[in-house]
């Protein structure tokens, strides 16, 4: 009832819509019920004349307690359902297919794990969890796919992410939902959900092999050697001048100030670009050069992808 949600094309779209219906139904019931009572009073007790006699009623402890407690209980339930669904939305499965997204005024750039790059068109296979790792090159944007019921702001300072599992073949809108200037409403992308087979053809672009560039992890490996990282960082676990990078991604690491940091995309990026911000415990006083301005966006992403393979 009263639902105008778009097509349900992701695994949790039905759940979001169920929750939305749940809230809407309670709301409509309350709005109509209370309004009906108000109108009934307004008509039933309509003023007949200036001498109408009215009772002196000031409060009712039981009634007031009831209508404080009942909405509170309903609110707890609604919060819980909202939290439960959202918790899942914020925790992608480990085997999700990762795609890098870059928001640029006013377009969306996508980069797949094999190096294929596209603009304003995201193609994903049906039934597989997809995790988008997103960053902006200029102002704040917001990545929104109504059919998947997902949205997350895309910032220029940190990576943000979202994930979904498409369940229905088709083409869907991608909108920018955070105002970003002149062509904000023109920052439209297209999401195409295709079969596994078609996705393979698309990804490896069997028609046009030239379009495929170096996969990020390989680009990262190349840069890792080129920038001299190997001089201090081993990739086999042996100790060098700097910490070994074997298995570094995803682990918890103790810093020189005693804090524990989880090595996610944001931490790795910071450690490359602003290398002195956080120092791993035991490596104080060793100065790694900061690579601010020396690596392209794709190269930083490539290095992160490479570290994930170690």
């Amino acid at each position: 009832m009263f639902t105008f949600m778009p097509e349900q094309a992701s695994e949790w779209a039905p759940y979001v819509d169920w929750l939305n219906d749940y809230i809407t139904n309670i709301s409509v019931f309350c709005i109509l019920g209370i309004t009906a009572v108000m109108l009934y009073f307004a008509i039933r007790y309509r003023r007949r004349g200036p001498d109408d006699v009215t009772p002196y009623i000031t409060h009712s402890a039981s009634l007031e307690t009831a209508w404080t407690v009942v909405p509170t209980v309903i609110c707890f339930f609604v919060f819980y359902y909202g939290f439960e669904s959202y918790h899942e939305m914020r925790n992608p499965p480990a085997n999700a297919m990762e795609v890098n997204v870059t928001g640029v005024k006013w377009r969306w750039d996508f980069e797949y794990s094999n190096g294929k790059r596209t603009t304003n068109e995201l193609v994903v296979p049906i039934g597989r969890a997809v995790k988008l790792i997103m960053r902006s090159q200029d102002t704040t944007h917001s990545f929104f796919i109504p059919a998947m019921r997902v949205k997350e702001d895309v910032l220029s300072t940190v990576y943000s992410y979202l994930w979904f599992t498409p369940t229905k073949l088709g083409e869907y809108h991608i909108f920018c939902a955070e105002y970003c200037g002149l062509q904000h409403s023109g920052m439209l992308g297209k999401l195409r959900v295709v079969s596994e087979g078609e996705f393979g053809d698309y990804l490896y672009d069997r028609q046009d092999p030239e379009a495929v560039e170096l996969p990020p992890a390989e680009l990262g490996k190349l840069k890792f050697a080129e920038k001299g990282c190997t001089a201090c960082h081993s990739i086999d676990g042996s100790k060098g001048l700097g910490p070994s990078l074997k298995g570094v991604f995803g682990g918890d690491h103790v810093m020189s100030d005693g804090s524990v940091v989880k090595a996610d995309e944001n931490y790795i990026r910071e450690s490359i670009v602003y290398s002195q911000k956080k120092i791993v415990k035991g490596f104080e006083g060793i100065v790694m050069p900061a690579f601010e301005g020396q690596l392209s966006e794709a190269e930083v992403n490539g290095l992160i992808a490479y570290l994930k393979t170690l």
Partner: peptide, 22 residues
């Protein structure tokens, strides 16, 4: 009443992800 109840849609995380900035 309408303002208040639609506020609940927006306070709820699961539905707000869809409604935010729309």
């Amino acid at each position: 009443l309408i303002a208040g109840t639609t506020g609940v849609h927006l306070a709820t995380l699961g539905t707000d992800a869809h409604y935010h900035d729309t």
